[in-house]
Amino acid sequence: MRTARKPLTAAGLLWGVVILTAVLACSILAGLSTGGGEGGLRELLFPAAGDGDGTRQILLQVRLPRVLLAALIGGALTVAGAVFQALLRNPLADPFVLGVSGGASIGSVLAVLAGIGGTGAGMAFGLDGRMLFAFLGALGALILIEKIATVDGSMSVYTLLLTGAIFNAFSGALIYFLQSIASLEQLHDIVFSLMGHVPSTGFGTVAVLAIGILAAVLYLFLQARDYNAMTLGEEGATQLGVDVERVKRRTFVLGSLLTGLAVSVAGLVGFIGLVVPHMLRLVLGPDHRMLIPCSFLGGASFLVLADLLARTVILPGELPVGVITALVGGPFFLYLLRTRRTGHEFR
C-alpha cells in the first residue's frame, strides 16, 4: 500500500472484476459440488431420470439457495466493511467491530419478541419482520455511535472504534436482558436467530435479498470516487467538491441496510467485512472503483467457501459459519492492530 500505484484504468477495473468473478464462480462450483448429501455438480447439471431418492431436489432446493445466500451475505458484509473503512479512514472498521452488527442483532431479537420474527412467523414473499428490524437496529446503532464519537464536528477514529466496542458490549448485555424477559417460547428462536449460520431458505428470500443487496452495492459503487476523495480527509474531499455529509449519510444508511439484511438472515457472522477488504486493498490498491465491486465478489467467495467448510467438516454435524469467519478474522484483526498502530495509513 505504500508503493506508488498506477491510476486505475477501465481495463484494470475490468480485469479485476473478471478475475474475482472467476474466483466467485469457482467458489460457487466448489460449494455446489460438495455437501452433506451425496450429489454434486454432475447430478445438478445432468439429471438422471426419475430422481427417486431426491438427490437433485436436495441440490436444487437445499444446497443451491444456501450457496447463493452465502454469496449474497458475504458480499453484503464485505462491501459494508469496505465503505465503513473508507468513511472512517481506518482499516479496522467493520460492521462487527463498529457495533453495527450488534445493533442489527438487537433489532432481530426485538422482532422475535414482537412476534414477527423467528421460524416461519411474519414471513411473506420471503420477507421477514426481522429484516426490517435488523436494518433499523443497524442504522440506529451506527447513528448513535457516530453521534457519540463526533466531538466539535470532527470524528476521532479511535473514539469511534472504542465507542463501537463499548456498544458491542452494551448490545450483548441488552440481548441478555431481552432473553431474560422473553417468554420461554421465544427463547429458542432468539438463540438460533443470533447464531452465525447460513440457512437453507427458499428462492423467494434469496431473490429479495439479492435485489436489496445488489441495489445497495451498486449505489455505493457509484459513490466510489467520493470515497477516493475522502481518503484525503473530509476537508480535502470538500475542497474537491464532495458533499461529505451527504456521502456519509447515504453510506451509513446503505451500509446499515447491507448489515441488517445479512444479520437478519444469518445472525452474527463476524470479521468478514474486515478481512476481505483489507486483503483486496493490499492486492488491488485503494481505489474504491475497484475495491467495492471486488469486495462484493471477494466477500461472496470467502463466505461461500467458509460455509462449505462449516457444513462439511464434521458431517453429519454442521458448524455455525460464524465460527469459521471468527477463526480467520480474529487473528487477522490482531495482526492489523499490531501492524497498523497509527491508524493513519489508509491510502
Partner: peptide, 16 residues
Amino acid sequence: DSDSPYQLVSLETMLQ
C-alpha cells in the same frame, strides 16, 4: 452417528 446427544446437522445429509 452424530457426535453429541443433540447436534446441529446437515439438512442435506438427513434428507439423503
